[in-house]
């Protein structure tokens, strides 16, 4: 099969269009620039595009500082004042209502109808996300009151239900965050994220600093919520965690999504097609364990052409121009699937 074949391309375009229609979240041309003093600017995210369907987990992987977290903050409208965003990020509307463009919505809309209600955030460090001086139960009840307006009598029950959905043991509800283990704190934070019954979950590095067993348990639980019909955008640098639960993988390098591929192909014998994605997988200790030479470029001084070219073994003169995404890969010399 030749990816450049026009019929194949048409078919691919049709698939993408269909995806965009019934997607929970559909992102196009998302670009974020930070203006710095002295007129410099940082290209944190450039032309990101992806769709996320219900019951699907998309893992966004890449090195620290490649713009993954900025993308998540942009979707929640949580960027600082010196950031400029463009593009669209359509969030599926509720019960027949039209979609909301997260990048164009004002702060009031985001605060009252989006965050917590239609997009749940599973935080990076649950310990820092929970209020240290209040019990898990009181935090859950407060969130229930704020998000659903449940009458006082029913709140207790609603909070317990939320805890149960996140597999947080009811016996620990009256504890304070510092009395919880790392895994339980993560579940408490997930329970908070699930209260609004959001169709889209955003998990920003939910496993950083956890040990392997805890990572596996945390992501398995996230997967369970996906199987209940939610969409999950999992932002992580942990490829093993992504391999465990993702349906599709998007690889980010220097602010651009350089490859989007089904997880079974990406992690399977065929492997990814972008040389950076291959290099990333080859760096895993259960594979070749060899690093990609060099370091990623500065986001404030990106080259004209392909940002990966200086580190790429396949680079040619052609790489001085920027490769457009083509069948899910933005590369002039995509590697063919390994046999």
């Amino acid at each position: 099969m030749n990816a450049a074949d026009p019929t194949v391309l048409r078919a691919l375009a049709a698939v993408t269009a269909e995806r965009a229609e019934d997607a929970v979240l559909s992102v196009r041309d998302l670009t974020v620039r930070f203006r710095l003093r002295g007129g410099r600017s940082v290209a944190a995210v450039s032309d990101a595009a992806f769709d996320l369907g219900a019951g699907e987990c998309l893992a966004l992987v890449g090195e620290s500082g490649c713009g993954k977290s900025v993308l998540a903050s942009a979707l929640l409208g949580l960027l600082p004042g010196n950031a400029e965003t463009s593009g669209t990020a359509l969030l599926e509307g509720e019960a027949g209502a039209g979609p909301t463009d997260l990048l164009a919505a004002d702060e009031k809309t985001l605060a009252r109808t989006v965050r917590g209600r239609r997009v749940g955030l599973v935080p990076q460090s649950p310990a820092g996300h929970l209020t240290p001086v209040r019990t898990v139960r009181s935090q859950l009840e407060e969130t229930v009151r704020a998000l659903t307006g449940t009458p006082r009598r029913a709140r207790r029950k609603a909070a317990e239900d939320a805890a149960e959905r996140a597999a947080f043991p009811a016996g620990h509800l009256d504890r304070y965050p510092h009395e919880l283990s790392g895994g339980l704190a993560q579940r408490a934070a997930t329970a908070l994220a699930l209260i609004g019954d959001a169709r889209l979950l955003l998990a920003d590095e939910p496993t950083t600093g956890l040990d392997r067993e805890l990572v596996d348990r945390t992501v398995d639980e996230l997967r369970r919520h996906v199987d209940e019909g939610r969409g999950l955008l999992l932002i992580t640098h942990d490829l093993a965690a992504a391999a465990r639960i993702a349906d599709r993988v998007a690889v980010m390098y220097a602010g651009r999504i350089v490859e989007t591929a089904p997880a079974h192909r990406f992690f399977g014998p065929a492997g990814p097609r972008h040389p950076y994605a291959r290099g990333l997988l080859d760096a895993l200790p259960d594979r070749a364990f060899t690093p990609i030479p060099g370091m990623p470029p500065e986001l404030s001084a990106l080259p004209e052409g392909c940002a990966f070219a200086p580190r790429c073994p396949l680079a040619t003169d052609l790489c001085a121009t920027r490769p457009e995404p083509h069948a899910g890969v933005a590369c002039h010399h995509p590697e063919h699937p390994r046999a």
Binding site: A283, T290, I292
Partner: peptide, 14 residues
Amino acid sequence: TAMLDASTTAALVA
């Protein structure tokens, strides 16, 4: 290497 991505991990170990 707990906070680092795969490539940086491999580079530091090397």
